[in-house]
Amino acid sequence: MKKRNKNIFDYLLLTLISSIAVILVLYFNGNKSIQEVIIISFSILYIIWGVLHHAKEHTLETKVVLEYAAFSLLGSILVIGLLK
């Protein structure tokens, strides 16, 4: 039960980070350089979230970090590619 609560907190945190990123992008619509910074920061925070979450669960391995890094790189390129 305690573990489930911990997970819920982690996922709520990720949802909060994602929501803030969406709101900031909407707020700065038209300012591409700020939007790029928001997307890069969001992606870095996503990797940090993954590392901390798996470290807490004692499941942190190189391939897990690589997975988060690969997804965040793809995500950043998909959005920044549109801004360019």
Binding site: Y11, S18, F42, W49, G50, V64, F71, G75
Partner: peptide, 15 residues
């Protein structure tokens, strides 16, 4: 041993 699918989904839904 893998990343969390739900986390990836949250990230890509936001994107």
């Amino acid at each position: 041993i893998s990343g969390k699918t739900w986390a990836h989904l949250t990230y890509f839904a936001a994107l």
